[in-house]
């Protein structure tokens, strides 16, 4: 996907970079902060162009094994699933914002797009989740009109040593219009 689809103002000059960044970040924040469960887990998203990295800051309530201690497998799964759903929504949303079909102000005002629904989700636990921050990135393998397939990887200290990965299928929200 190209990062260069600027919405040009009437003068024909590209918009200032801060305006574009602010619009994209506001849309992302609205999408993420609109979901209570994402807030409960404390997940945030870092955006570079259209690429998202999910962040799960460590918190004691995320512990599943207090003796090791280790992150709860359910937390890891939820983190991966949230990353997949937001990643999938963001692909659609990005195109709609960049083409001007959606006004980010609308999103900020609470008119959020319907989110994809999980059909199935399979998590592969590769290593113990350590009691520290975790990161994840989703890649959309296929996104059709009705169904999508998404792969997600989560890591902690080393990007090349994933502690969990998952694949899920999602039902896409009905397109308006």
């Amino acid at each position: 996907m190209s990062e260069g689809k600027f919405v040009k103002p009437r003068s024909g000059r590209p918009e200032p970079v801060q305006v574009i960044k602010q619009r994209r970040d506001a849309a992302l924040r609205a999408l993420v902060h609109g979901v209570p469960y994402i807030q409960f887990l404390g997940i945030e998203f870092d955006r570079r162009g259209d690429e998202l990295t999910a962040l799960l800051p460590f918190d004691n309530k995320l512990i599943g094994n207090p003796l090791l201690p280790a992150l709860h497998g359910g937390v890891t799964a939820a983190f991966l699933e949230v990353t997949a759903i937001i990643g999938l929504s963001w692909v659609t949303l990005w195109e709609e914002i960049e083409s001007g079909r959606i006004d980010p102000q609308n999103l900020v005002a609470g008119n959020l797009p319907r989110l994809p629904k999980t059909i199935d989700f399979t998590v592969d636990y590769l290593r113990t989740g350590l009691p520290r921050d975790a990161y994840a990135r989703a890649s959309v393998n296929r996104s059709g009109r009705r169904y999508a397939s998404v792969h997600v990887e989560a890591w902690q200290d080393n990007r090349s040593r994933a502690f969990a990965q998952a694949t899920g299928h999602f039902l896409m929200p009905r397109q308006s219009g």
């Binding site: 979901v35 209570p36 469960y37 709860h72 937390v75 799964a77 699933e81 949230v82 959020l112």
Partner: peptide, 18 residues
């Protein structure tokens, strides 16, 4: 706090997973 779809109030699949 477990809501995954703010429009319907349905809890997030991640909570069911946990």
């Amino acid at each position: 706090k477990l809501i995954g779809d703010p429009e319907t109030g349905v809890i997030h699949g991640g909570a069911v997973y946990a």
